[in-house]
Lab assay of single mutants.
Amino acid sequence: MLDDRARMEAAKKEKVEQILAEFQLQEEDLKKVMRRMQKEMDRGLRLETHEEASVKMLPTYVRSTPEGSEVGDFLSLDLGGTNFRVMLVKVGEGEEGQWSVKTKHQMYSIPEDAMTGTAEMLFDYISECISDFLDKHQMKHKKLPLGFTFSFPVRHEDIDKGILLNWTKGFKASGAEGNNVVGLLRDAIKRRGDFEMDVVAMVNDTVATMISCYYEDHQCEVGMIVGTGCNACYMEEMQNVELVEGDEGRMCVNTEWGAFGDSGELDEFLLEYDRLVDESSANPGQQLYEKLIGGKYMGELVRLVLLRLVDENLLFHGEASEQLRTRGAFETRFVSQVESDTGDRKQIYNILSTLGLRPSTTDCDIVRRACESVSTRAAHMCSAGLAGVINRMRESRSEDVMRITVGVDGSVYKLHPSFKERFHASVRRLTPSCEITFIESEEGSGRGAALVSAVACKKACMLGQ
């Protein structure tokens, strides 16, 4: 009897593995994704193909990295998701002549009506938060230079001027797309009239992360975010950046690689679950690469896999709870928690219980395998993109072996128990001629924006502006 049951459990697990095998990517698959990513990057950089390229390769006008001589107080704003952060950054000489960066910050959550109302409502709310922060720190009387981390696709015309191309991540505030974001912020500050600010720089969160990590390690020339969304930036040779005049030196390019796949480059790798996630998203047909990796989508992918296993009578005796059938019910943090389970399955059992399920031991094991399959594919897909960037940098610099540091931020990278190990191992397999160091950014977005502002202020002083 026991043997029969054991055989049935083994057969069930084997069927589960057959279904989950769809998520496995072979090294040849990853090399294919990497080569296609490089081709799209090239198209994004070139003037004649930029418009139709899915990977936009947006110039950021960040050319210099901090040298350690900029000092002063800077205000930093960070808008990239449902939370908005205001930070005071003091850049100065530390002990023994070292450079020191001290920060104080406060988080504000953005109400739904500000995210989806008008641009005026959104930026009025942001300036209200700045006003509140300055009151708390008794700094209303000071006109501070301000660095703005704005983590949406922007076409820069200068370091302090950028046109919002399109909202992502659930934002829909009308009247912002096609307009200068810094102008919208300046107008809102003017409307309030109770404080003055000098907006000197606007950067993407990947750029802010790279600059913040450069402060720790001067070989950091790539910034990457794996959180709600997924994106990367890197220092490109100016001669390859056709959208900006000049051939000397390097400029940081914001790849906006989340949109890779929007022209069909990933079609052969998309599964039924991916198509369902895409169809029910706020932007169907867009940001397809990001939807395979980002935390906004990972939990939902797992939920759809679990429903398939229920329908195949391989999980929960073929019956799903009402909660499990509800879109968004299986949160991405559950994926991390399930994979963090120590082996007694308590954590998995508790999560499934909150979803109205009474799982068996085998159910718990199957749910864990589903989570591992989805998150491992995410790590491997992400590795193909980064390997594409790094191999490109090595080739354009004609280096036999390139040493490089990548600064990384984002909740999936930082909080998932195995993502970074799987990701690092896969990147290294795909970049055999590179020695890569990964560092995690601390308060990256805010500190990085302030350091970019410090560079901009120093330049302005040198130019006598």
Score class of each variant (00 low, 15 high):
residue 328 G to E: 13
residue 241 V to G: 00
residue 283 N to C: 07
residue 242 E to I: 04
residue 65 T to Y: 11
residue 55 V to D: 10
residue 30 L to Y: 12
residue 232 A to C: 10
residue 7 R to G: 13
residue 84 F to D: 04
residue 445 S to G: 09
residue 295 G to M: 02
residue 191 R to G: 00
residue 297 Y to R: 04
residue 77 L to Y: 01
residue 226 V to I: 10
residue 131 S to P: 01
residue 43 R to T: 13
residue 78 D to G: 01
residue 378 A to P: 06
residue 7 R to T: 07
residue 406 V to S: 03
residue 396 S to G: 11
residue 73 D to E: 15
residue 13 K to A: 09
residue 325 R to N: 12
residue 54 S to G: 08
residue 210 M to G: 01
residue 94 G to Q: 08
residue 359 P to R: 10
residue 424 H to P: 11
residue 405 T to E: 15
residue 307 L to E: 12
residue 399 E to I: 14
residue 17 E to M: 13
residue 305 V to Q: 13
residue 213 C to K: 00
residue 212 S to N: 03
residue 347 Q to R: 12
residue 460 A to I: 15
residue 358 R to W: 06
residue 112 E to I: 11
residue 243 L to Q: 13
residue 77 L to I: 03
residue 227 G to L: 02
residue 128 E to D: 15
residue 407 G to W: 02
residue 327 R to N: 15
residue 60 T to G: 01
residue 199 V to I: 01
residue 208 A to T: 13
residue 463 L to A: 13
residue 113 D to G: 13
residue 314 L to A: 10
residue 41 M to E: 06
residue 118 T to V: 04
residue 427 V to N: 04
residue 304 L to D: 06
residue 27 E to G: 10
residue 153 P to E: 05
residue 125 Y to T: 03
residue 93 E to T: 07
residue 126 I to W: 00
residue 440 E to R: 13
residue 207 V to S: 04
residue 336 S to F: 11
residue 397 R to N: 09
residue 309 L to C: 15
residue 137 H to T: 10
residue 26 Q to P: 14
residue 318 G to I: 08
residue 140 K to Y: 01
residue 60 T to A: 09
residue 345 R to Q: 07
residue 407 G to R: 07
residue 301 L to H: 12
residue 81 G to V: 01
residue 369 R to D: 09
residue 65 T to M: 15
residue 113 D to W: 11
residue 405 T to V: 12
residue 404 I to P: 03
residue 23 F to K: 05
residue 19 I to S: 13
residue 314 L to Q: 15
residue 121 M to E: 08
residue 372 E to R: 12
residue 326 T to D: 14
residue 278 D to I: 06
residue 388 G to C: 04
residue 351 I to F: 03
residue 78 D to V: 03
residue 260 F to W: 02
residue 63 R to M: 12
residue 142 K to Y: 09
residue 43 R to C: 12
residue 312 E to F: 14
residue 267 D to G: 13
residue 146 L to Y: 01
residue 198 D to M: 14
residue 76 S to N: 02
residue 185 L to Y: 06
residue 247 D to N: 05
residue 255 T to G: 03
residue 291 K to Y: 02
residue 393 M to R: 11
residue 61 Y to G: 03
residue 126 I to E: 04
residue 347 Q to G: 12
residue 363 D to N: 09
residue 22 E to S: 06
residue 349 Y to A: 09
residue 28 E to A: 13
residue 177 E to D: 00
residue 428 R to G: 14
residue 336 S to E: 15
residue 75 L to M: 14
residue 413 Y to D: 02
residue 6 A to C: 08
residue 462 M to C: 09
residue 276 L to G: 15
residue 342 T to K: 12
residue 338 V to Y: 06
residue 259 A to M: 03
residue 88 L to C: 09
residue 242 E to R: 10
residue 143 K to S: 05
residue 217 D to T: 15
residue 51 E to W: 10
residue 432 P to N: 06
residue 417 P to T: 08
residue 322 E to T: 09
residue 57 M to F: 01
residue 300 E to C: 07
residue 212 S to D: 15
residue 255 T to S: 05
residue 2 L to G: 12
residue 131 S to F: 06
